[in-house]
C-alpha cells in the first residue's frame, strides 16, 4: 500500500508570499510540541487536503496550517513557537554619546 506522500517545506514559500514578504524557506522554526528547531524547508507538507498542513519532521505534530478561500486566507501557526528570519545587517549602531 502506498503511504500518503508529503512535500517539503519549500512548497510553503509561494502560498506564504501571498501573505508576507518573508522568504519562509530560509527561516528557522521551533516546534511547539517537541522543541525541535530547524529549517522550515524541512517540514513535511500535506497538500492533498482542504488546506496546507505542515508538520514537524521529528514528531509529526502540526506546525502550520494555511487555508486559502477564494477571497480570504487563514493562517494558524500555534504549533510554531517562533520563526527565526534572516535579516539584512543593521547599520552600525551609534556609540554612546
Amino acid at each position: 500500500m502506498t503511504e500518503m506522500s508529503y512535500l517539503d517545506g519549500n512548497m510553503l514559500d509561494g502560498p506564504m508570499r501571498e501573505l508576507f514578504t518573508v522568504d519562509l524557506s530560509s527561516a528557522m522554526g521551533r516546534c511547539e510540541n517537541c522543541g525541535t528547531t530547524g529549517s522550515m524547508a524541512s517540514l513535511h507538507v500535506y497538500s492533498h487536503a482542504p488546506g496546507l498542513v505542515a508538520r514537524c519532521p521529528s514528531c509529526e505534530e502540526v506546525m502550520v496550517r494555511l487555508v486559502r478561500g477564494p477571497d480570504r486566507a487563514w493562517l494558524d501557526m500555534r504549533g510554531t513557537t517562533y520563526l527565526q528570519v534572516p535579516m539584512p545587517m543593521e547599520q552600525t549602531f551609534p556609540g554612546p554619546l
Partner: peptide, 9 residues
C-alpha cells in the same frame, strides 16, 4: 475516490 489527508496515515 480521491485520497485526501492532513497527515501520515
Amino acid at each position: 475516490f480521491p485520497v485526501l489527508s492532513a497527515g501520515p496515515t
